[in-house]
Design a protein around this nucleic acid. Structure first.
Lengths: 343, 343
DNA sequence: TTGGAAAATTAACTCGCGTTAGTAAACCGC
DNA sequence: GCGGTTTACTAACGCGAGTTAATTTTCCAA
């Protein structure tokens, strides 16, 4: 059914040398002298036989798998709906492959079996972990980090000092809110992207508050409503804002998906965007630019997040110094038509 | 920095037996008698020491990696924009993990180095390959298949008899077109999703033609325009349709993304959807439901494609019989507001 | 031509685990 | 208490490659 396996032994025989010599040549082992002719002969033999180094054997002998695990803890459906994960994975994959490593992918969701991370590490299957997603009580990761296991979080961990890469949610939310303030709005609502148990939700709310305070505007609790990732939750939240006796002239919605629901609700109330209410979103999902009017929003550098996270993990794995253990990337405000001057 | 590695030897010592016995117990090796007490003692020891089987050693000894490679050949940007890949990956991951296997992810793009597939297989790093994307001249895969390497294509290969999973593009396009015919349209334009070098483009065009022929409608070459994946290409194609002396009252656009451009163009010409022109798309991208009016389109079972492809590969890897080497999944027509009765 | 250093190559051990063949102890019928 | 089965366990080899220590060959100065 299949051809016999090609090992260093076959290559050695064909080149008329010992297996050890083959290993030296193929690895360019330093402090070893091999005559140019022999070297050439071995390389030729390897090429002619289509030799490929056995991964398991190499890994066993060296103790390194040249592989990392990319684990996402978001509910798996998110993968199917949102392009964020795809962009992230793209970046991670590029950075890691570039360093000569491979990526094992796991969609663990939130029900990961206890000890799943440790098992990957202890079985020597991977050299490091890259984890994305909301981390609820992941004390396991703290233990691993303490043991010296290379790992990087994509996101902003609640506790501990785990190496992480994320956007600067506070600054981004502040930027979005300041945009509305600059447009002349004074009563600005806020709808969070998720419950405040998530650091991203908290941080974006903080940014909103900072912007208001910096501008000397009052913080009105009633103007702050909670979203929960879905567009439906945006419907609820916006309804609450619209029912206020003195309703806002603008709203910062900390998630484009949630904003979709909010926008629908505004229209159903017979109000116009941005005429009656200005909206600024967050995430810059692909459809943001196709809405009518286009959604002004905060763009996340999806691919770059992945690239940086991947790079940081590679550095950790290879023992190189990591300049910033907590990298925060800048976002950019994409101005379209959903937020306008308050006359 | 790190604790000493736990191997079967440590477990054996702690349980007071030989390493072989530990192996027998941990693997439930058949035809071997181990007393219940000994078995218990070994399992306890393993648990207490947090023993995890070394992956490389196991793989080397058994010759199986319990790992498959999921390779995408689409341009990597697509990952960042479209949710299709995410859904697919989600399905693949579920199916493969369920079978106790792991997924190595590669975004090879189109510039994959010659021999990349073979290297993965020959190095024993993976037991099988799952490849998604437009396959240009991938004769390498035919060779591997001939050698008995387990592999599955997500998509419809040009040539050969490689195992594959895809939607039925012909039937789907036919369904979409028939929907327009049933609405009373007689002059129906078509914009392809990509160049006809792609099987998916060809098949969707074929479905369109079949629908027209079945309804006794003439095939007008001028009504068939070529898209190229992007919304910009949709702009060009629709412009060509609108410039026709006798322009269509409806169009089947074989890609939602391309349809976005087409829709923009229609509006820029001052025409209304579906009043002046009805549109049916293909893919059901997430934003299709948010357009105004909602885009009537063909929904691809993203996750299911991944699930089936993963399952098929698992069967091939484990030598189980594969009922259908060329699986074609059904799609569904999602009727929204972009296609209406032709008065 | 000979001693000795440098250059070229190899034997042998190791990594952790699967597995075959074999040994030792326990049991059993008579 | 003796041959013959089970039952319970282990010694030893192999998977393919990295690596150290040793060995052989080459080269050159004295």
């Amino acid at each position: 059914m299949s051809g016999k396996r090609i090992t260093m032994k076959q290559v050695a025989e064909r080149a008329g040398v010992s297996r050890t010599t083959v290993s030296f040549v193929l690895n360019n082992t330093p402090n070893v002298n091999i005559s140019p002719e022999t070297r050439e002969r071995i390389l030729d033999a390897a090429r002619e036989l289509h030799y490929a180094r056995d991964f398991a054997a190499t890994s066993l002998a060296t103790g390194r798998a040249h592989t990392i695990a990319f684990i996402i803890r978001q509910p798996p459906e998110e993968l199917s709906v949102d392009a964020f994960m795809g962009g992230l994975l793209n970046g991670v994959s590029q950075a890691v492959n570039h360093a000569g490593y491979h990526v094992l992918f796991y969609a663990m969701g939130l029900n990961a079996s206890k000890g799943a991370y440790a098992e990957l590490i202890r079985s020597q299957r991977v050299d490091g972990l890259l984890i994305s997603g909301p981390l609820v009580e992941d004390s396991e990761l703290l233990d691993l980090d303490a043991e010296g296991v290379p790992l990087v979080i994509q996101g902003t961990p609640d506790v501990g000092d785990l190496p992480s890469v994320d956007v600067d949610n506070i600054a981004s939310a502040r930027m979005a809110t300041e945009h509305l303030i600059q447009l002349g709005h004074r009563r600005i609502g806020m709808i969070t992207n998720g419950p405040l148990t998530y650091t991203s939700s908290r941080d974006r709310l903080t940014g909103y508050i900072q912007a208001l305070e910096a501008a000397g505007l009052p913080i009105d609790e009633g103007l702050i409503q909670s979203g929960e990732f879905s567009d439906d939750s945006g419907v609820q939240a916006m309804n609450r804002l619209l029912e206020l006796p003195h309703r806002p002239t603008a709203a910062f919605v900390a998630s484009d998906v949630v904003a979709l629901g909010a926008i629908r609700t505004i229209r159903e109330h017979g109000l116009r965007i941005p005429g009656d209410i200005s909206i600024v979103g967050f995430d810059d999902i692909p459809l943001a630019q196709y809405l009518e009017p286009g959604l002004t929003t905060v763009r996340l550098p999806r691919v770059e997040l992945g690239l940086h996270a991947g790079k940081m993990l590679m550095d950790l794995v290879e023992g190189k110094p990591v300049p910033e253990r907590h990298l925060r990337l800048n976002t950019s405000l994409i101005i379209r038509g959903s937020a306008a001057l308050f006359e």
